[in-house]
C-alpha cells in the first residue's frame, strides 16, 4: 500500500531525474527485513517507484552526499536537513548541488525499545503502526498500544526543530512531534547526579564492549575527514587495539571533533552493534555547545561554523 506522501515523493523524484534537475536520487526503499528500510541511491527514474517513507527510516542519508558527484536529490527528515546545512556551513557541500526533498517526520520508532517492551524480536512481530501519539504493535492478532514517547528514538524525543526550514520541495505539511526532552536525557540526568568517579566507571563499562568497528563514525555525516586520527600511524595518536581506554578516547575525541556540527541525529547510536548509549554523549555535547555559545548545529547555513567563530568575550571563567 502506497501512502499519499510516497506517491508524491515518487513522482517528484521521477520528475527531477527526467528533467535532469538531479543526476542521482538518494532515498529509502523497503529493506530485506521486517520494519527495515535501506538507502536507495539511484540514477534510474524507474527506481523512483521503489521509494518509501514510513516511521522506520532510520538512516541519515546526508552521509552519502559528499561522495556522489553532480546534483543530488535527497530525501531528508528535519534532523537530516540540519546535517546537510552543517555540511554546507563547512563547505563540504554546495547548496546548489543538493535538492532537498523535505519529509515531515513525527519521530522514528525505536525497534530496540519495542523489542524490550514486547519481550520479542522484531521478526516475531506482525505489525507496528503509528497513530498520532500512540504506537500500536500487533502480534498474532493481539494488539498492544504504547504512548509514542515510550517507543520513539531518544534523539527524536529531543527534536525541537520539527519545522523544516531549509528545503527545495516539501512533501507534506508539518508532522506532529512528540517532544519529551526529559525522557530524551534520562540517562544524562542519571549520570549528572552521580559523583565523577561513578560516571567514569559507567562510561568505562560501556566502552569495554566496543569492538572498534567504527560504524558510529562511518554513518556520521559530520565525520567527513578523509583520514581519521585513529588511522594515523606516525604518530599513532591512539592505539588501534580495542582496549577500553582507547575505545573511550576514540569516541570522546570524535564527539569533541564534531562539536557544533553534530546535530544529535542519533545515527551513531543506532548503528552501534553493541549498544553503547552514544546519544547520551552527543546530546550532552549539543547541550554544552548551546549553554556556552548559544549555538545550535545545522540551523543556519549562512552562520560561521562553531569552531570557526568566536566572540571577544566568552567562556573566560574557565581560564586563569
Amino acid at each position: 500500500m502506497t501512502s499519499k506522501i510516497e506517491q508524491k515523493l515518487r513522482s517528484v523524484a521521477r520528475e527531477l531525474l527526467e528533467q535532469g534537475k538531479v543526476g542521482t536520487i538518494v532515498g529509502y526503499e523497503a529493506g530485506s527485513l521486517k520494519f527495515t528500510n535501506t538507502p536507495l541511491i539511484t540514477k534510474d527514474k524507474e527506481a523512483a517507484d521503489r521509494l518509501v517513507i514510513n516511521p522506520f527510516i532510520i538512516n541519515n542519508l546526508s552521509v552519502f552526499l559528499k561522495d556522489i558527484g553532480g546534483k543530488v536529490g535527497v530525501v531528508a527528515k528535519g534532523c537530516d536537513i540540519r546535517s546537510i546545512v552543517s555540511l554546507i556551513q563547512d563547505k563540504q557541500l554546495a547548496r546548489e548541488n543538493v535538492v532537498i526533498i523535505g519529509v515531515p517526520c513525527a519521530g522514528i520508532i525505536d525497534l530496540d525499545k519495542i523489542e524490550k517492551l514486547m519481550g520479542k524480536d522484531r521478526d516475531e512481530l506482525d505489525d507496528i503502526v503509528r497513530e498520532n501519539d500512540k504506537v500500536i504493535v500487533t502480534v498474532q492478532r493481539s494488539k498492544k498500544e504504547y504512548p509514542a514517547k515510550d517507543v520513539l528514538i531518544d534523539s527524536c524525543l529531543a527534536c525541537d526543530q520539527p519545522k523544516i526550514k531549509e528545503y527545495d520541495i516539501l512533501l507534506d505539511e508539518e508532522a506532529t512531534v512528540v517532544c519529551d526532552d526529559e525522557a530524551s536525557r534520562s540517562l544524562i540526568k542519571k549520570l549528572e547526579a552521580m559523583p565523577p568517579a561513578q560516571r567514569w566507571e559507567f562510561w568505562k563499562s560501556q566502552f569495554e564492549r566496543c569492538i572498534r568497528c567504527y560504524a558510529c563514525r562511518q554513518v556520521c555525516p559530520a565525520c567527513y575527514c578523509k583520514r581519521c586520527f585513529v588511522e594515523e600511524t606516525e604518530p599513532a595518536w591512539i592505539s588501534p587495539l580495542p582496549k577500553w581506554q582507547d575505545n573511550l578516547i576514540f569516541q570522546v575525541t570524535r564527539m569533541m571533533h564534531v562539536a557544533g556540527r553534530c546535530t544529535d541525529c542519533g545515527a551513531c547510536e543506532r548503528a552501534c552493534p553493541v549498544g553503547i548509549p552514544l546519544h547520551s554523549l552527543s546530546k550532552k555535547m549539543a547541550e554544552i555547545v548551546q549553554e556556552l555559545f548559544e549555538y545550535q548545529a545545522g540551523t543556519d547555513k549562512d552562520a560561521l561554523p562553531l569552531m570557526a567563530a568566536y566572540e571577544s568575550k566568552e567562556a573566560e571563567d574557565l581560564i586563569r
Partner: peptide, 27 residues
C-alpha cells in the same frame, strides 16, 4: 579565541565523562 572555545567544550565534556575538571587547566 579558537583555543578558548575548544578548551571550554573539552573541559565541560570531560567533566561529564567523569574526569575531574581540575585535570585540565588553561591560562
Amino acid at each position: 579565541y579558537r583555543a578558548r572555545r575548544r578548551i571550554a567544550i573539552t573541559k565541560k565534556f570531560l567533566e561529564y565523562m567523569g574526569i575531574e575538571p581540575e585535570r585540565l587547566q588553561a591560562s
